[in-house]
Structure formats: C-alpha cells, structure tokens
Design a binder for these strands. Structure first.
Length: 865
RNA sequence: GCCGCGGUGGUGGAAUUGGCAGACACGCAGCUCUCAAAAAGCUGUCUUCUUUUCGAAGGUGUGGGUUCGACUCCCACCCGCGGCACCA
C-alpha cells in the first residue's frame, strides 16, 4: 500500500467492521467448537496504549483471528482494570474525579485498539470500576467472609512516615516509598486477610492439570513453597509452658543446642509477667524487640547483615537429650513462617551456625560426614551423605532416612508430628485508598464486646443451615482466634453494590486510614444486628480483587447489572460450562505468580461454593507469557528517558499493518527485543511488494498451466504458517511468507484464483487492512476475509518440492544433490548419484568404504577409512 | 545461595525426532535508474587462505565426552537475563 494510501483504507474498513459489529462470540453457537482466547486487560493509564500492549495484543489477535477463520466460535474479549493508584494520584493532583479520568482514558484506549484492528467482541467490554461489575467483586468478598476465609487481623504493613500512608508491596521499591523515596517502616494495622493458604495444596495439585509453560509452573510452585517436616514441642524449663517449632530436619534434633524465637512471638510478651527476670534483663529484651519492630523489612532481610539477638532468660528442654538449652530472641527468625520459633542446630544449619559463632553457643554434630569436616568453620547440611551419630534410635542411618524415622519416633513419644509449612502467606486484602472497591462490611463495637459473630445472628444461622452447619465450609482451624470476627457484619447482598461515595479529598488521612474515613456520611452506619450506631469499613480492596475473576465477567457481560436474583453470581451456569476453561491465556511474566495464583484461588473457591460449575477444576488451560519490547537503545522504555515508542505514532507513519506485522516479525513472541525502525521498514517493503504482486496477478478466468513447483511451495507455506501461528512462532510464519513472495517474484509465478485467495488469507491475521482491501478490490469478494475459511494444505502437493540432499564423507559435507522428492527417498539412486559426483569420488578413492548412512530426503554419509 | 531461561555473523534472529549452521530481515559495500538525491531494483556480505574460479580450513560462550554425524544429547565450567531469597 502506498504510504499515503493506508489511512483511507484503514478508515474505510474500520468503519465497515464497526458497522458489522466487530467480532461477536455467540453463546452456544451451533455446529462450531468454542475457543476462549484471553489476553490480559490493561490498566487504562493516562498515557494511552503502550507499545507493549500493542505487542501482546497483536499476538493474541493473530492467534484469535486464525482460530476464527478455522471455524471456531472464538471469544476474544477486552475490558479495563480501572481501579488503581495512578488515577487516584492524578485525582489528588487535579481534583478531577477518578471515574471521569477513567472514562476519558478508556475512550482513548478503545479508539486505539479499534485502529489496531484487534478483533475483540466489544459487546462484552467490562470495567472493574463499574458498579455493576464491582457489585460482584464485593459479592465474592462476602462469600469469602461467610465461608470463614476472610477475617480481620493486625498485620505488619509497609508504612511511609512521610506520606503517612500504608503502602502495598508493589509501591515499595528497594525498601523506599515509590513516591517520595523515604525509607519504609513496618507498622501494624488492622487488615482484612484472606486465607489463601488453606488452598495451598489445591493450588499446587491443580497445576498438574494445566498446560502452563515450565517457567510459570515453577514460579507458582516456588511461590507456594511447600516444605515437609515436623512440628516439635519443647517444654520451657522455668515456665509451665511449651514452645512449638517447625523443622524440615527433625533428624538433627539431638544436635539442637539452643532455640530462637521471633521478636513478634507471643512468648516474648509473657516473659515480663511469667519469667522471674531481673529488671535490667527485661529492659534489654524490650529494647531489642522495639528496635526490631522499627527496622524496615529492607534492613531485616539485608543479605550481608550480621545476625543480632538477645538471650530471653528462658531455657527449654531438648526432648531428645533432656538437656536444658537457652531460648534466644532474634529477628532472623520470621514470625510469619512456621511457628515463629526454631530449634537451632548449628552443626547442620548455616544460619544457626552463624548465630552460634557470634554468641559462643555450643555446636554439637549429630551427622558424621564421610570427609573430614571442621564444624567450627561451617555447618554440614548435606542430607544425602553421612551417618547419624549421638542420636539414639537414629544412629547409623543416612540423614534422609533418619528424617522419616525421627518423625515416627516423635509421634510415638507424643512430642511432635509430621507437618507441612508453606512459603505462601495469607492475602492481605485491605488498602487505605479511595479508588478501589469498598469492602462491604460494618463493625459494631457493642456486638464485638459481647463477642457476637455474624454466624450467631439469625441471618448467619440461616446461612449455616443452608451450608455445612459450621462457620466456614473450610472450618477455622481449631484454636484459631475469633478475634477480628466478632462484631463484623456483612451488608445484605441485595444492597450491593455498595457504591463509592463522592469525596472532596482523595488523599489518605493523617493516621493512615483510607480517605473514606473522613466522610461521615460513609462511616456512620447502623448495626444490622443490634441496631446501634456502627462504623462502616473504610478500607478498599486491592487491585487484584477486580482482576481475579474478570475472565468470568466477560461470560456474564450484559447480565452483570441485571440478574433476576441479585444473590446469584451466574444465573445461567451453562454459559460458564460452555466457555470455560480459558483455552489460551496470554499475559506478562509479572503476573505469573500473584495474579495467576489469586485468580486460580478465587475460581476454585467459587467452584466449591457452587457459584461456578465444577466441571473444570482450573480456569486457564494454557498460559503463554509474552516478551518485552525495549527502546532502540536496548533499555527499558520510560518517559523520563524519553525513549518511549508510541504505537499510534508508528501507525501514523507506516500504517497499522506494517506496525502489527513488524511487531510479530521482531523475534519470538516470548523474547525481549529492542525496537528497530529500520527493520520495520523492511516489513513495510514486504507488504508493498505483496500488494503489488497480488494486484499484478492475472487470476480469475484464464486457465493456467498447472505449475507444480508453485503449488508445492504454496501448500508448504499454508502448512508452515498455520503450524507456526499455533505455536506462537509468528516471526517464522512471516519469514516464510517473505520467502515465498521473493521466490514467486523471482520465478514470475502466476497464481490461480484459489491460490491467490489462500495467499491473501494467510496474511489476513497479521495485516487485516491490506488483506481485506485485496480480498475485495482484487478478488471481488463481498464478505470479509476475516470470516473466510482458513486455507488447508493439499496433501497431494506436500513433500513434492525438490530436495537438496547433502552428501557427506565422514560427516563432512562434500556435495549437494538437487533431486525430486521421489528420487530423494530412493537410497540406491542417491548413493549411486553421490558416488559419481567428482567432489565425493575424490574422497572415496582415498580409503575403504566402511559404512553408508542414508536418511531419506535428507542426507547420505559415507564412512571411509 | 536457590529456581527458571538463555549465550549462534556487524544487528534482530532461523535451524521437526541429532542430518547442508546462519533461513527471513536489518545494516554495510558495489551497481542500475537519475543532472543529483530520495524511492525502487539488482549483486555481494560468517571468518581465514587461494590472484580469481574450482576449492580448502576453521566456526554456534569455554573445556572434555558420546556419535558415521552435535547449535541440538551427556559431564565440568564461564558469562548474561528474569524471579525468589535469613522460609528453619
């Protein structure tokens, strides 16, 4: 297409696609197989569509378009992940309501996406900040609460002392506040917490049924971080209490010479009251604990940091040796992992070893390594080699065998049991921001004091009757505190959505509460149980809340705002049954852990409570993660560096088809690649030659002499392009088309109508405008090329191309023979021809032929000695 | 430290189950067209050697190995990228 021409063509076809309603996906389309192609929906930022969006969405679009042409009923939807901090910050700065900003931005995104010809089903567009949408985000939260998976807890959060606000982990960059650069402190705030850890095993097991790439599976497995071991109880000598630890190495119990508890461990609080310690000692402990609390997460996890600690004054009894061992307090032990306490075995654990050296604690080896080992210098951590010593019943065993034996021994003695621990933490669900979904809960102080939980109210009892009879289908673990549950009541489901109120100021309040806390009309509520004045929750939900079920929202789009029964998430479950699971989910690496895990969790949970059908245990069948486009200088694009490539500007200059085709040609879909405008011009040239070639073909009426060579090449091309698109190998698909075109021009091939159609169709997913133009202008078709059937390779012509057979002598290439496909398979013929070739004969004459290797159609190799 | 991915011309990158390394494109050089330039087209382009041709030798991070044959498989190592990281 001539450069000045593409604009008209783009305008023309876009108008027609718009008129025809783009690419609707019908529920239950008859006689077609469904295909659900999903690409991550964007946060509609003020800067418009980024080249990274254009890249991943073009890849997804090419794939979806090909599937559609193959006759699938393709669902390829798009929407907006609208809640988020940038919009809120913009509102703080300008005073413009975030909803207004969002509407403005999504209009820009929508226009840009339509221009780039992404074949979305726009009827199913969703927006997480739309009350009809967050109605159900809130509903899901209520189900989590009612089923005992959400509660309020004091949790350490990241606190910026300068901005006076809590920060999400994503807002903390290297331990500093993203906005002002102040070092972040840890602070405890009451937070809603969702018990995702109770799904840890299910989330792990579910992975096996999915077709995620190894990298993604590994990331999820790592994040869940399951480790097997044992919990062991230690009696505390001068207190009638016991201390439980988690360990993966119960075999080394006999070598435990001290214990360490986290500064946040409950036992620390009891030291002052229960242990009879001198005042000076108590002061020392308190000083250490306070100092640890003030330390930022950064300082606490500093790699090279020397370990610090303080002796608690308490002693525990090692249940295996019966010896008294000191209990220390140190911040290298994390309160949030295991039991917040460890048994320290300095001879066989590096961290314990470092601590023992610093505070001169005894190091007692219980594994005899094969080689000489200086236990004063280093811990011996190998579990494969060595023999247990000084360990009673375990003596003589290899450590990995001793682990199992030790657990059995502990269970028999009643001092410990097999246990599992996870790296995965519960999900902190509260944010102290305005621009998010309000958490639909009310707190009644009066009821809280009386210890009334929602399950004890008439409504709650009715809920329990309907369900399993206990608070929580997945019951609270025995002993779990009810703190954080008493006095908290959900608002009635038929009152949803609980809409965000308009506020005057969007910034957080001085004490770190959400801006909603400053709105009296918001906070003042009536207790649904006792009718006394109560306080509405002022926190909002994290960004993940809206995005973790959006793939379901597309299926219900249009119905979200008006279900007949406002309490039922999906009234017509057959729609979900039909479309799920998502067949291919395309997104960025940055969402391979959190987003993917959260949404898998929510989906499993919704299945468990019967809100979505249970046929498919996992929401996503295949996950493809796309690569990243760097600036021409090879660095990440950023506004401050001024190296940002804007898709709209590229499209202005070269046209959408050239942009799309170049994006797909740059390299593998998963790769990190630098933008190169010159290479784009190469693609532009290809499209121009393609147009010229197709327009210049006689085509149509006149009967052509059959050109077997051309047909063979074209059918190979059809097979290659189709297969490559299926494998997301767009770059080689385009390369193959370029090669065919070069050959066709060079050999001056004339294509018949059928061949010409096929060629245009192959290009259609990549260059939708040009192909549509040629389809109508050159081939005179009425209907769109994008609904035309995908060409099928004719088996008759496959494998009929001339072959180059490589002839080797002792594995070294000496000659090549050009043969027909038939000849190339004929061993006798090839060997005879090869032997005759002077370049080969020369080497055969130098020795004796020992062996001849022949691979049909590929190679002949003579072994000569 | 652990987990995952990768290392191929001047550049981005190709290479079914081990079977012609460098497809396709960029860049560069020369040429055609032109008063000239742009655009377009043609030719060449892994390195070295041979005046050229014919050809020969080397070559996919390094060192070994398996094989008739290795970018591909195995062992050891080096480097880069991404994620996690005091996880008991």
């Amino acid at each position: 297409m001539a450069r000045n021409n593409f604009e008209n063509i783009e305008r023309k076809w876009q108008a027609r696609w718009e008129k025809e309603g783009w690419y609707p996906a019908e529920d239950f389309a008859k006689g077609k197989k469904k295909f659900y192609a999903l690409v991550e929906f964007p946060y509609p930022s003020g800067s418009g569509l980024h080249i990274g969006h254009a890249f991943s969405m073009t890849g997804a679009d090419v794939y979806a378009r090909k599937k559609r042409m193959e006759g699938y009923n393709v669902l390829f939807p798009m929407g907006w992940d609208s809640f988020g901090l940038p919009t809120e910050n913009y509102a703080i700065k300008t005073g413009i309501h975030p909803a207004k900003v969002t509407a403005r931005n999504t209009a820009i995104f929508r226009r840009q996406m339509k221009r780039l010809a992404f074949s979305f089903d726009w009827r199913r567009e969703i927006d997480t900040a739309d009350p009809d949408y967050y109605h159900w985000t809130q509903w899901i939260f209520l189900q989590l609460f009612k089923h005992g998976l959400a509660h309020k807890e004091k949790m350490p959060i990241n606190w910026c002392p300068s901005c006076k606000t809590g920060l999400a982990n994503e807002e903390v960059i290297d331990g500093h506040c993203e906005r002002c650069g102040t070092p972040v402190e840890r602070r405890e705030l009451d937070q809603w917490v969702v018990s995702i850890t109770r799904y840890a095993d299910r989330l792990l097991a579910g992975l096996e049924t999915t077709d995620f790439v190894a990298k993604v599976k590994a990331a999820q497995i790592n994040w869940i971080g399951k480790s097997m071991g044992a919990k062991i109880k230690f009696q505390i000598a001068n207190l009638g209490d016991s201390l439980e630890v988690f360990t993966t190495r119960p075999d080394t119990l006999w070598g435990a010479t001290f214990m360490v508890i986290a500064p946040e461990h409950p036992l620390v609080g009891e030291i002052r009251s229960k242990a009879k310690l001198p005042a000076a000692k108590i002061q020392e402990i308190e000083a250490y604990v306070n100092q640890a609390r003030r330390k930022s997460e950064l300082e606490r996890t500093e790699l090279e940091k020397e370990k610090t600690g303080v002796f608690s004054g308490l002693y525990a009894l090692n249940p295996a040796t019966g010896k008294q061992i000191p209990i220390w307090i140190s911040d290298f032990v994390l309160a949030s992992y295991g039991t917040g306490a460890i048994m320290a075995v300095p001879a066989h654990d590096e961290r314990d070893h470092a601590f023992a050296k610093k505070y001169s604690l005894p190091i007692v080896p219980v594994i005899q390594p094969k080689q000489k080992w200086d236990f004063d210098k280093a811990a011996y951590t190998d579990v494969e080699h060595g023999r247990m010593v000084n360990s009673g019943p375990l003596n003589g065993l290899a450590p990995n065998v001793a682990i199992k034996k030790a657990i059995a021994w502990l269970e028999k003695k009643g001092i410990g049991k097999k246990a599992v621990s996870y790296h995965l933490r519960d999900w902190i669900f509260s944010r102290q921001h305005y621009w998010g979904e309000p958490i639909p809960m009310v707190y009644c102080r009066h009821c809280a004091q009386k210890g009334i939980t929602w399950w004890e109210t008439p409504e709650g009892k009715k809920f329990l009757q309907k369900n399993s009879g206990q608070p929580g289908i997945w019951n609270l673990e025995p002993g779990t505190s009810r703190r954080g549950l008493a006095g908290w009541f959900p608002i009635a489901e038929d009152k949803l959505p609980l809409k965000l109120p308009d506020v005057e100021r969007y910034q957080p309040t001085d004490n770190g509460e959400s801006p909603l806390a400053a709105v009296k009309s918001w906070t003042e509520a009536k207790c649904p149980v006792c009718g006394r004045p109560a306080r509405r929750e002022t926190d909002t939900m994290p960004n993940w809340a809206g995005s973790d079920w959006y793939f379901l929202a597309y299926l219900l789009a249009g119905k979200l705002g008006k279900p007949h029964d406002k309490n039922i998430f999906a009234e017509n479950k057959d729609i979900l049954r039909y479309w799920l699971p998502v067949d291919v989910y395309i997104g960025g690496d940055e969402h391979n852990t959190l987003h993917l895990l959260y949404s898998r969790f929510i989906y499993q949970f919704l299945g468990d409570i019967g809100a979505v059908p249970k046929e498919h245990p996992e929401p996503y069948h295949r996950r493809v993660s796309h690569g990243v486009i760097l600036a021409p200088d090879g660095r990440r694009m950023s506004k401050s560096r001024g190296n940002v490539v804007i898709p709209d500007r590229v499209a202005d200059k070269y046209g959408v088809d050239a942009l799309r085709t170049y994006l797909m040609f740059m390299g593998p879909f998963t790769a990190t690649m630098a933008w190169n405008e010159n290479a784009l011009r190469g693609v532009e040239r290809f499209l121009q030659r393609f147009e010229k070639f197709v327009m210049g073909q006689a085509g149509g009426k006149k009967k052509l002499l059959e050109n077997k060579e051309m047909k063979a090449a074209l059918n190979e091309l059809i097979k290659k392009v189709g297969g490559d698109i299926d494998n997301f190998a767009f770059n080689t698909a385009i390369a193959a088309m370029m090669k065919f075109l070069n050959l066709a021009i060079e050999k001056n091939w004339r294509l018949g109508r059928a061949e010409l159609e096929a060629l245009v169709k192959l290009l259609a997913p990549f260059a939708p405008y040009l192909s549509e133009e040629l389809w109508h202008r050159r081939l005179g078709e009425e209907k769109s090329v994008h609904w035309a059937p995908w060409p099928k390779a004719d088996a008759k012509y496959l494998g009929t191309q001339k072959r180059m057979i490589a002839v080797q002598v002792n594995g070294k290439l000496r000659a090549t023979l050009e043969l027909t496909a038939e000849e190339a398979k004929d061993q006798e013929k090839v060997v005879a021809l090869a032997k005759k070739d002077p370049r080969v004969a020369k080497y055969l004459a130098t020795g004796q032929l020992k062996k001849t290797i022949f691979v049909p159609g590929k190679i002949a190799n003579f072994v000569v000695k």
